[in-house]
Nucleic acid binder design. Structure first.
Lengths: 153, 153
DNA sequence: TATATTTCCTAGTTGTCCACTAGGTTTTAT
DNA sequence: ATAAAACCTAGTGGACAACTAGGAAATATA
């Protein structure tokens, strides 16, 4: 699992937007970049992707900027990662379920599919609102709770 | 989760070796390449990594080749992937537990750590012997069982 | 002991993607 | 009219991925 800078920045910018999802005020890319701590020009490009994918809307010109287009409760991290980074899981550039093995490796595809399913269980169940509130789904919290989850291997 | 060609090939070659883990016969890289269906010269390089990491031993010269150095029951897919591809999970080049966020993204690290833990639960629990026998751990099978696990998103 | 076999090592090559930056054009509130 | 912003095109530099080529050293066997 390689979360790219793009993906990380996308999520962080959306979280900042979700934080201020109150009114009708648009947030310029510069402001978001400053508050999320990411490179401004790069974020501008990422916000373009997020707009085309329907996560944010934009207003041009003075007083312009970006607004969250959806309820933070309905935006999963998985959906963000997919639009910015492509599929959650790939094996040699193929989707896990499209891999085909024979002989000794026959059952390998099952493992890859299981690994992807495990990822989906986390990323497609966790929303912007969850992260913002620090109130993660129970099974997510359970996985991150044991101290060894926070150690290297 | 991006399983590289290197990693995929490494696992497949090890599975072939595990299949024939009977006697004292060494298997040349060419043979493994043919039987696993991977490029020979490339596999040679990968086998070098696997040797240095202690997964296989090698014999040079005529009648030489590679032998599995460990019991297939003790070789997890996770350990293979790590030696060949590096850490299972990274966020912008950092380990998940080393990421540091503040403000709206404060709890993001917890999600990344949970995602990695989910991956570990699969990949560090599944061994070469499991895959070879098609007898995967119960929770792995459970994850791969539902039909939607085999579909795109 | 000559020979074929095989690992081992160094060094490419080609292409792709990643993380950004630069600079201009269009839109729009004030 | 002006300033603020999104938007768009084009780069750039570096890293890495997936290989390939070719030779040097080791070793069983005829």
């Amino acid at each position: 699992m390689d979360i790219s800078a793009r993906a990380d920045y996308a999520v962080r910018a959306l979280l900042v937007l979700a934080e201020d999802a109150d009114g009708d005020v648009a947030h310029p890319a510069d402001e978001l970049a400053r508050r999320a701590g990411v490179p401004a020009k790069f974020l501008e490009a990422i916000l373009g992707d997020l707009r085309r994918a329907g996560f944010v809307t934009s207003r041009r010109g003075s007083r312009g900027g970006y607004l969250l287009a959806r309820d933070p409760h309905d935006v999963t991290l998985g959906s963000v990662l997919r639009t910015v980074d492509g599929p959650l899981a790939e094996v040699r550039g193929q989707r896990p379920h499209e891999t085909h093995y024979d002989g000794a490796a026959q059952h390998l595809a099952t493992v890859w599919v299981a690994a992807r399913a495990a990822l989906r269980d986390i990323l497609d169940e966790t929303t912007l609102a969850d992260v913002l509130a620090g109130d993660l789904p129970a099974h997510v919290r359970a996985l991150a709770e044991p101290p060894e989850a926070w150690q290297s291997r």
